[in-house]
Nucleic acid binder design. Structure first.
Lengths: 239, 239
DNA sequence: GATTTAATGTGTTATTAGTACATATTTGTA
DNA sequence: TACAAATATGTACTAATAACACATTAAATC
């Protein structure tokens, strides 16, 4: 988690004060790996860490879980706070619980990835250091967040082959070229266009809109919309 | 988690005492779904809940995570305590964090499944109500443990198709018939013997031992051993 | 308006994986 | 020696995957 809110950050004094309570001195946080896609780049929403130990390092968006909220609700709250979006696809991935993973105290964190359409929200990011970063360019991060990011990226790779989750990253109308570019960006491989189209049409995930791209400096492609789309753990649109 | 050790169970008084500490009143537990296979039945190791609310109900083996142990270590500890086994296959599956999931207070739990060879250990179970139960027969359980069991079972189903984890449930030497029976028990389907053998031989997971079953009241089958075997997250035996 | 540029759109073949299905063989037992 | 109960094995059909090339469209440029 990133401790960007002063009142929630773990101070060593606080930890000492309560350390005699044997089983209530582990804090629980969630970290959201918020993926987006813009201008042909697969991106992730990150903040600069405000901890002295990780000065200048990038960190995931996270927060401590409140005693009166479900674990899943905590990740929705963070997403809502950071992106203004309500209805996003969120997927729990893994819980990281090494003793020394947080320098200020014992904090275990549950990682979620989420997929948002960058254009669908006016990011509530002007007030601090939250920015979209190209996933491929990210090297070191604060805490164990690089490992968390990699784990979520890997999980996403396997999900997009099986379930129609990728459409959460795209605008309502998209060309197959855009869809393929996105698959390639997430998977990190080049795909054959004909085989790709055949595979997509077999899966029956998209619907031809009988519309064309406009404002492209070449032959425009057909536009499609998602037919089946997975949001919040359930598939919609499939009979 | 199951609170079978008095000193670790959550008493309401304790919870109230510390509830003013905003972010240190969530307890963290792990629950182990310990699968085994014996006499043609796919089994899970369970204990009778000692909570009044769940009198007579079955519960997973779990415990609170200690402040000075890694999350993964906690699950190894439980496994060691309950089965006496050190070197078992353990896989984190999911973290369950609904507010009201534990009647005595706020406890989030991370579920692991593990695969053990029932014959490899003298169960340290004589001292309490721990027993192997046929997975197919289990109905209601304490807490949200039925849901946890189902989630782990489902995860195992997908893992055994992809990775050589199933051998952790079997004795050193086994017949293909036994292997197939186990696949069928876990997947809950019947498999065609010829296709099953073809698939297994394609995967190159087993090695012919040039030995035969003995003491069977019919034609004996060949014995095999695991060539590749997945333990503790890594494959061994594959080049 | 003819040419160039840069992309879209499409089909076939070869290979591999998956599915359905039947008969001969081996051992122990009656 | 016949029977019961299991093992061991191969082929044809279908579906999915992978490799691969050319005609078409619209905009931009000359």
């Amino acid at each position: 988690m990133s401790t960007n809110k002063g009142k929630l950050s773990l101070k060593t004094a606080e930890i000492e004060k309560i350390s005699h309570l044997d089983y209530f001195n582990i804090a629980v946080s969630v970290d959201c790996v918020i993926f987006g896609y813009e201008q042909n780049e697969f991106k992730v929403l990150l903040i600069e860490s405000d901890l002295e130990e990780f000065k200048g390092k990038l960190s995931l968006l996270g927060d401590l879980v409140r005693p009166d909220e479900d674990l899943d609700s905590a990740s929705y709250r963070i997403l809502k706070e950071r992106t203004g979006l309500d209805d996003v696809y969120l997927q729990q991935v893994h819980t990281f619980g090494a003793i020394q993973r947080h320098p200020s105290g014992r904090v275990i964190t549950t990682a979620y990835y989420s997929l948002v359409n960058i254009n669908h929200h006016q990011l509530k990011i002007s007030d601090n250091q939250v920015h979209w970063h190209n996933v491929a360019d990210i090297r070191a991060m604060a805490f164990d967040h690089k490992q968390i990011l990699d784990t979520c990226h890997e999980m996403l790779r396997s999900h997009i082959m099986e379930h129609p989750v990728i459409f959460n990253l795209l605008p309502e109308k998209f060309s197959l070229r855009l869809l393929q570019d996105l698959y390639e960006a997430i998977l990190g491989v080049q795909l054959d266009r004909r085989n790709f189209r055949k595979k997509i049409s077999l899966k029956d995930w998209v619907q031809d809109l009988d519309e064309m791209e406009t404002d492209v400096p070449h032959r425009p492609g057909k536009l499609y919309k998602a037919k089946a789309k997975m949001s919040n753990g359930t598939i919609t649109g499939v009979i």
